[in-house]
Amino acid sequence: MTSAFGAALEALDRSANSPKEFCRPFVDLFPVTGASVSTIGSLLGSETLSASDGVAARLDELQFDLGEGPCWDAVRSGRPVLEPDFTARSSARWPALSAAMRDAQLRSIFAFPLAVGPLRIGAVDLYSVERVALDQAQAKQADTMADVVGRHVLRQALNAVGRDYDYRGNAYSRRIVHQATGMVLAQLDLSPDDARLVIQGHAFATSRSMMEVAQDIIEGRLSFSSEDDGIEASG
């Protein structure tokens, strides 16, 4: 890949182990002033991992504190939130944030969810002091880049919590996990690696072992879908 987008994806993969670098390819590729990458919500907590400048970092903190804003909406909906002209019409949606944004003279804001399958773990925020719009292709690219970041962030977080969630187990339980990986990759149309990451992440989120989660998947008590909240438990 030699396109700017390809280069951005490669840059993200290169910085897989240095989260501070995650925002840079977004700022390089899109016509925005700054960017931030943060985890949000119960799975990994709320924390800014990467911010291109102080404004981007403050924008994240503000949203954490207020509990509202595009990054929360992106995480909740699992979809991009595009607001090219913040000052014009966003007061009702995010009343507290809107006031702060106006004070800071920010004009456009865009948020893309960090998600791995049904696991929503955070968001990428892009902001601009000038009014800018992202066209459909740009929004799709940013969304794809956010997916890449999401996988890196989740993988890192799971590595950090230790080997319980990087399951090796015995031969029998490994098979179960592999089989469950197959079911999840078919349910969500993911690669085997990502499907395994979903099982790991779900195990972490529910404080259970991968083996237990895998068994629930195989026996149909737990299934994933890309719709809505994406996790269905039954039985």
Partner: peptide, 22 residues
């Protein structure tokens, strides 16, 4: 064989897509 990873995964895929047991 303890390392039939791909085959085990494929079993999972087919179990789901075809609604059959592993």
């Amino acid at each position: 064989l303890t390392s039939r990873i791909v085959i085990e995964q494929a079993k999972g895929v087919v179990a789901y897509t075809n609604g059959v047991t592993i």
